[in-house]
Amino acid sequence: MNAHRASQRVAVSILAAATFLCLAIVAFVIGFVLEKGLPQLSWEFLFTKPRDMGKAGGILPAIVGTLALSLMAIAVALPLGVGTAVYLAEYTRETRVTKVIRFGTDCLAGIPSIIFGLFGYIFFVTTLKMGWSLIAGALTLAIMVLPTLIRTSEEAIRSVPQSWREVSMSLGATRWETVRKVVLPNALPGIVTGVMLSFGRSIGETAAVIFTAGSSFRLPKSAFDSARTLAVHFYILAREGISTDKAYGTAAVLVIAVLAVNGLTYALMGGFMKRKAR
């Protein structure tokens, strides 16, 4: 019996050590980037254009490009994702059709970003003649984030109590009126969570973006202009050894953006859970 206790002690210590190693890695990754990058940040860095291929100056066009690209991608993907989720959760039982849709969504979620990059290049950039542009990048990203939006929205819709639908329908509302006026407003926090997750993914994406939106330095003026995102800018700075300092600064901006997005998501989800518990 004592031997069993001893082996339990050893096993649990090993498991605990593994857990703390994981946490230490997280702390190191974030700490390292912020420690090296925060000193590089200044108003000038954030709000001026890069000079001399990025050796000097700031990252304004990359910030604008990142925001434009992410927002456009979500604008395209959100109606599709929520529509799919409403169909799956409200308009059908589990049939062969829903199985195919779910399988398609799972497969899409597993496709590596470089494949999206290849596809976006050959389809949007070349075949549809959009060229390297914000619109080509945004459409590629929209397909990439679609599975996330579908999953989180469906979960949110399913968490709305069944009785609320029944009350609405018994008052003479159609299914669509019920979805619009009862289900979707109450599923909103969950849907917003999905939007934030998609936003986070769009900010950090590189492989799919570099082949579709290109890497132009200039401030994009329309959806058909090429643009460079923060992640692409960082990749080029780091890989071509243009400026380690500017690379650290850009990495810090990326990490801060990711932290903000995740923090906001958890705050939202926390509020959502509390409301559900009430």
Binding site: G83, T84, Y87, T127, L146
Partner: peptide, 24 residues
């Protein structure tokens, strides 16, 4: 009508997957 429209929307993921595979 809404039901048919939503079904069409729901098929976009499958369509995207097929188009991606087809072009690659």
């Amino acid at each position: 009508f809404v039901r048919r429209l939503l079904l069409a929307v729901a098929c976009t993921t499958v369509l995207c997957l097929l188009v991606i595979a087809a072009f690659i």
